[in-house]
Design a protein around this nucleic acid. Structure first.
Lengths: 340, 340
DNA sequence: TAAGTTGCCTTAATCGTTTAAGTAGATCAT
DNA sequence: ATGATCTACTTAAACGATTAAGGCAACTTA
């Protein structure tokens, strides 16, 4: 028995052929070997339990068949947790079926340099940036390099990077339109952190929905949150104090919706009897709240999927058929919104 | 300008030295070059923006400095989502600071073979199995190979694999003891899926806590769940119907606790005024429920950390100082348990 | 002064593949 | 019979690093 794991050389000698032939049968270049030879080679492979060395292969083909995925620090961004898992799931799913492995680097414990190293040292063929913060130095850095990149989530408008994201504006506009169709006229919003472009777009969608129905925009009906539950709390508190309270509140994400719902309930205000709440994202827990949270469901996994697809396309063709993709959200009706 | 990225050869020629010298200064073999030479080399490196090719290096040193992490299909296992993120965070954090990159493979979209390939093709130096299901074929397969492995979470008792997990038995025993110290004598439990060893251990801990206080174990106070919220619902329903209802319910995980809490509240039974609830895990949402969920907090991130640490130790020394590690959980008191 | 030592650098083998180019025998057309 | 074309291989040069072994001054030491 061999101590080290078997190489193509071992296979070649036990099959009595050259390593080139072994390589050819492995890669299925069927016009380069005969059937009996192939059988001998395959037998040797099984016997030795050989599998081709990925590293050596990468070196010569000048491609690692590996994608890098950069996940942001989630600290302080509660949004991200299940969000990121789902996105990763989608990304991995497409990657492996396209024959790519995936390296992951988290910015949690780490600085920009590690992420950069991952592509500079040639250990990946390209990178996906998952939900990078707008101000991420990585974004502008990677924009300069010519490394294949796709970002999942929103990018600052001045950066031209291929990206795939949910269509915030349409989704929020639809949410508001639906609220209106449920009879609501006084609709409040708890926004995300307006320093982020995604928040701004969601607010734009909110206005657009109002506008479509010819309902006037009332500044006092917009409360600025930051995507975290406490700001949902604060928003609820703010709206409670208002003389002319909104009958429905649109939250820019589910976490704030949860916070708001909790605050209302603690204050004896019933959801949805007294106030309706609609969220955004469809995080996992949204289906287990009391009442179940009605929300705009992001196609998160599909975003991950598409990111992988576009990244691989970019790697293989050197170009991209489309540079930016917006996926529609879906209205998910549960119990937190009342018809009035 | 070069089209391709610069190699050590390019650096050598622009610095006017051999590639061996370049390699030596990069690796800091300070007795193998002079200061002026080093300066020339470093200058060339900066000028060309060179960084050493990871693949080539891996090939010759026979080590990829890459760890594989296998995450289970989370489908149907709501437990896992934030749980896995945190564990990954911990794992990544230690890995990168030890100079390792991390490849991830998800079993979501994929079968055992991809996971196996990841280690067989030499693209990783070892693998971590994150919370593998007891019956995972991977577990027994990997047990046979001599590949460096550490598993995060529980393993079937008949498999001798290095692992790190929370100390379920002690933790559950403590939870029950604390409930008792809060004045509860009639304590129910909603277990996890008893096909999983972790569930069994949690049930054992539950009994042990009772026993320590000299309280008799009542079979009708144990409801078998499956770790998912609906089974928490079902458990709550079961306990509600009981003539002699428990005053406190210990849930084997937070998701079931959430389900139970919701069911009680929907049925007009107040938590914690009428019934106290304690969970296990400390998932993210546990702090945002109404009332906040008191729970046993798993040191998930630390588990991830330790797994990486042990895996790297195993890779580098070929052996392991300790083969199994149990980390303590911490009682996290919020509002779902009443003193009576 | 001859032999050894030290400091600094180069040469060349190696890791395990891929793949272009070469070879040699068999078959075919002319 | 001769060259051309297949078929089924083998040879050998990459890929980009690491690293043992060797070379050659310039010193040290006996």
């Amino acid at each position: 028995m061999l101590r080290r794991s078997p190489t193509i050389k071992d296979v070649a000698s036990t099959a009595g052929v050259s390593i080139a032939t072994v390589s050819n049968v492995i890669r299925g270049k069927s016009d380069l070997f005969s059937d009996p030879t192939a059988e001998r080679v395959r037998h040797a492979i099984r016997e030795l339990n050989y599998s081709p060395n990925h590293t050596a292969r990468s070196l010569v083909i000048q491609s690692t068949k590996t994608l890098g995925v950069v996940v942001p620090k989630s600290h302080g961004r509660l949004t991200s947790n299940t969000y990121l898992s789902s996105m990763l799931d989608g990304f991995l799913s497409h990657s492996v079926s396209a024959g790519y492995q995936v390296k992951i680097i988290s910015l949690v414990s780490d600085d920009k340099r590690t992420a950069i190293a991952l592509v500079e040292d040639g250990s990946t063929d390209g990178v996906a940036l998952l939900a990078p913060p707008d101000e991420s130095p990585l974004l502008s850095w990677i924009h300069k390099t010519r490394i294949p990149t796709v970002v999942a989530g929103s990018i600052p408008p001045d950066l031209e990077l291929p990206s795939v994201d949910v269509d915030d504006i349409s989704a929020c506009s639809e949410a508001v339109s639906w609220l209106i169709s449920m009879g609501h006229r006084k609709i409040g919003m708890i926004t995300g952190d307006l320093a982020q472009w995604s928040s701004r777009r969601r607010e734009i969608g909110f206005r657009k929905g109002l506008e479509t129905a010819g309902i006037a925009y009332r500044p006092e009906y917009v409360f600025q949150g930051d995507y975290n539950p406490p700001s949902g709390d604060a928003g609820a508190h703010y709206f409670m104090e208002l003389k002319d309270r909104p009958t429905a509140i649109f939250c820019a994400n589910d976490w704030m919706a949860l916070g708001a719902m909790r605050k209302f309930q603690q204050s004896g205000i019933r959801v949805p009897a007294d106030v309706s709440i609609i969220g955004f994202d469809d995080i996992q827990v949204a289906q287990w709240t009391v009442p179940g949270l009605t929300t705009m469901q992001q196609p998160i996994q599909e975003i991950g999927n598409k990111v992988a697809e576009m990244l691989i396309e970019q790697i293989q063709t050197g170009a991209l058929s489309q540079s930016s993709l917006l996926l529609p959200a879906a209205l998910l009706i549960r119990q937190s919104v009342n018809q009035i």
